[in-house]
């Protein structure tokens, strides 16, 4: 069990002069499964992007801590796994090449065993050397899980994790969420009931609209 925590302090985000959410506060300091919920356009994706450090907040901030030490912004990406429908990997490379390149760019050692294990788990081992552009959308979605998990992140952010997946795929994702939730923090942004049913705590974005 890792000692990771994320905390939102008076978080505010507006696009131009349009407010997305205001005065958002939460703290997740134990491993487990947490959710972010809200209708379409309520800012779920915006919030997870802010948490992942991809875009900045307008006011306030997100504090990531590992063993009570704050993680510097430029190292944050090595502690986070991120899956979303709008994530795109390099289509001109195969799954295996993608993962190898990502490990090198991260500056970490390529863990072949872990990638093989994940490839098996997501039923992609046979296609690992095919270019991504030959994959179906469901397969691409599964590759994203490998991308998110290969560096064993302490925080797993899943934005609509089950989109494009068939029932079999969905079940393996739920299994994975439970498994990861044992030792890490899993954050799910979704408005599907099934996705959120295992969450111990849910942030409802409609509550922070003014």
């Amino acid at each position: 069990m890792t000692n990771y925590s994320i905390e939102a302090v008076e978080l505010n985000k507006s696009f131009g002069r349009r407010l997305i959410f205001n005065d958002l506060q939460f703290k997740f300091d134990k491993s487990g499964i947490y959710g972010i919920s809200g209708p379409n356009g309520s800012g779920k994706s915006t919030l997870v992007k802010i948490i992942a450090g991809i875009i900045g907040a307008s006011k306030g901030k997100i504090i990531h801590k590992l063993d009570n030490k704050e993680i510097a912004e430029e190292n944050l990406h090595n502690h986070i796994g991120f899956v979303s429908p709008y994530l795109v990997l390099y289509e001109e490379f195969s799954t295996y090449e993608n993962m190898k390149l990502f490990a090198e760019i991260r500056g970490t050692k390529f863990n072949g065993d872990r990638v093989d294990y994940l490839l098996e788990k997501f039923l992609l081992y046979k296609r690992k050397d095919d270019l991504l552009k030959t994959y179906s959308s469901g397969m691409k979605q599964r590759v994203k899980f490998i991308f998110a998990l290969m560096h064993s992140p302490e925080l797993l952010i899943l934005d609509e994790p089950t989109s494009n997946l068939d029932d079999e795929g969905k079940n393996s994702v739920y299994e994975l969420i439970k498994e990861e939730g044992q030792k890490n923090i899993v954050l799910i942004a979704s408005n599907e009931k099934n996705d959120l049913e295992n969450c111990s705590d849910i942030v409802y974005l409609e509550k922070y609209k003014n």
Binding site: A52, G53, I54, E74, N75, H77, I80, F82, Y86, L87, V88, L89, Y90, E91, F102, I105, R106, F147
Partner: peptide, 20 residues
């Protein structure tokens, strides 16, 4: 254009991206 900027943001710090 391909939408892979997000992927790069998730694996590298901005200075790494610019330098690369």
């Amino acid at each position: 254009e391909r939408g892979t900027s997000l992927t790069l943001q998730l694996i590298a710090a901005p200075s790494t991206v610019y330098a690369g």
